[in-house]
Write a protein that binds this DNA or RNA. Structure first.
Length: 494
RNA sequence: GGCCCCGUCGUCUAGUCAGGCCUAGGACACCAGGUUUUCAUCCUGGUAACAGGGGUUCAAAUCCCCUCGGGGUCACCA
């Protein structure tokens, strides 16, 4: 019987969740779910200076949105809690004390100034910068005397001679010479434990079987393995997923655009598209299938086949995926998702939509093929809410309309007047109009371009008779009448 | 700079571990057609890559070495 798979994602609540972090979390989660194991959320708030509770809340909220659920975490607790590292400090310090008694850790009295000087010299000599070991072999007597004298000190881990090799699930065999590994600080001068200590303590205590994390942690791995060995604890399996890169190939930073998961949520990307996209950055279902669900991801996911190289954030692919998902939704679903954007654009609110649900759904349906994200909805529908005598005419629409003149539009309007009564049957009106055009001996654009301009002010868009039906008889008539005057005025040389 | 990791179309990738099925497949983007009252959707087709150089082998995108390029990391941050 093999040990259960237990994975964790351990964000530090010092800012919004990075989109790359979200992808790492997705992989970590998918791995656990694929193997029927547990996924644990742990908050790495060991930096009191920068950690804030509001970031923790936002990060958890982001995961809820993504549908990444956790079995144990700061909000739901669990058998290995607490799940905030700041609340586990006593345990961490206990381990540090144990390590010190066993000779694995030693106090170091070096000042930052001295450390900085040492580092500078090493860099000048083009060597690996690391602690030079001045306090490594201080005798007990000296240590006691200096501590009693009130000197502050940190606790360093005593890295032994040799090398550490481990099997990374993504990268294969990786070796680090210990000569390159620093005698790193486990406990700070103020008595607070540091990352590598708490990470190993907690992963060990929480019985994490697979440590899956970002590539930036690769160099920490030998330090952590050494610590597991010093503690006599089983070493988990490691996998380091590559970074998400900005277009230039560098690590994504603020100036490269939206780096936070929340940015994409705010912009109205369907959550399924975000999940699908994130999964595609570094992983492929079968090399052919591009659009797949969260369930399919879980079913097929394996961390071992995740790409070794970093992937450039492909916004165009995200947009395409977004469109794919939007189009699979019913008009009602798109409307519900787009409502917040309609509201902030001042076009409609929940009450208005509820009062005229069928109309709003019909309007949304005409826009569904033309939007990338939910936030694009207001732009597509705005013309429907304009004042009938002040529809904004797009330059291209106006040019096309004036080119055709107003004669045919006026003639059609005279013909259509008796048909513009509720309820309007868009399909029937369209068919009848085409017959009328045939009988009139004119071309379609001669009517349609001016009509489209006066009704929507746009050069393109949904079926004209859908627009007529949406506007209704009275507003259609009003737009044509004021439009006729406006087009005539526009055509006159000034 | 030291150490570690990586290098297939512009981008995301399949293929690499188990060399031949690869005149390198798919997708986004782009270009050209078609459908359409317009825009969009949709359909069809096209351009486009094994970083470079040496080996090993009957055979290399796949194995080995070197070079070049990119990234990560070098904190009393995580």
């Amino acid at each position: 019987m093999t040990a259960p798979v237990r994975t964790r994602f351990a964000p530090s609540p010092t800012g919004p969740l990075h989109i790359g972090g979200a992808r790492t979390a997705l992989f970590v989660w998918a791995y656990a779910r694929h193997h029927g194991g547990q996924f644990i959320l742990r908050i790495e708030d060991t930096d009191p200076e920068r950690s804030e509770r509001r970031w923790e809340d936002e990060i958890l909220d982001g995961f809820r949105w993504l549908g990444i659920d956790w079995d144990e975490g700061p909000d739901v607790g669990g058998p290995f809690g607490p799940y905030r590292q700041s609340e586990r400090a006593a345990m961490h310090l206990g381990v540090a004390a144990q390590l010190r008694r066993a000779g694995w850790a030693y106090p170091c009295f070096c000042t930052r100034e001295r450390l900085d000087a040492v580092r500078e010299q090493q860099q000048a000599r083009r060597e690996t910068a690391r602690y030079d070991g001045l306090c490594r072999d201080l005798d007990d007597e000296t240590v006691k005397r200096r501590i009693d004298a009130g000197e502050t000190f940190v606790l360093r881990f005593r890295v032994p001679e040799g090398s550490t090799t481990f099997q990374d699930q993504i990268r294969g065999r990786v070796t680090f010479e210990h000569a390159e590994v620093d005698d790193w600080v486990m406990v700070r001068g103020d008595g607070a434990p540091t990352y590598n200590l708490v990470c190993v303590c907690d992963d060990s205590a929480m019985q994490i079987s697979h440590v899956i994390r970002g590539e930036e942690h690769l160099v920490n791995t030998p330090k952590q393995i050494l610590l597991y060995q010093a503690l006599g604890e089983p070493i988990p399996s490691f996998a380091h997923v590559p970074l998400m890169l900005a277009v230039g190939g560098k690590k994504m930073s603020k100036r490269d655009g939206d780096t936070a998961l929340a940015d994409y949520r705010r912009k109205g990307y369907p959550v399924e598209a975000v999940i699908n996209f994130l999964a595609l950055q570094g992983w492929a279902l079968d090399g052919e299938t591009e659009v797949f669900s969260r369930q399919q991801l879980v079913e097929h996911f394996d961390v071992g086949v995740v790409s070794k190289s970093g992937s450039v954030f492909d916004l165009q692919k995200l947009s395409w995926l977004s469109e794919q998902y939007v189009r699979t939704e019913s008009p009602g679903q798109v409307l519900d998702h787009g409502l917040p954007y309609l509201e902030s654009a001042g076009l409609a609110n929940a009450a208005a939509v509820a009062a005229d649900r069928a109309w709003f759904e019909r309007a949304t349906e005409t826009a569904r093929e033309r939007i990338t994200t939910y936030s694009d909805l207001p732009d597509q529908l705005a013309y429907l809410f304009a004042a009938d005598d002040a529809v904004e005419y797009d330059e291209k629409a106006l040019a096309a309309a004036t080119k055709q003149g107003t004669v045919h539009l006026a003639a059609w309007h005279a013909w259509a007047r008796e048909r513009l009564v509720e309820p309007i049957d868009a399909a029937a009106l369209g068919a009848a109009t085409k017959d009328w055009i045939g009988e009139s001996g004119i071309k379609l654009p001669q009517l349609f371009q001016p009509l489209r301009c006066v009704l929507s002010g746009k050069p393109g868009g949904p079926d004209l008779f859908e627009i007529v039906a949406l506007l209704g008889a009275a507003r259609t008539t009003a737009r044509i009448e004021s439009g006729l005057a406006r087009l005539t005025a526009a055509a006159e040389p000034s």
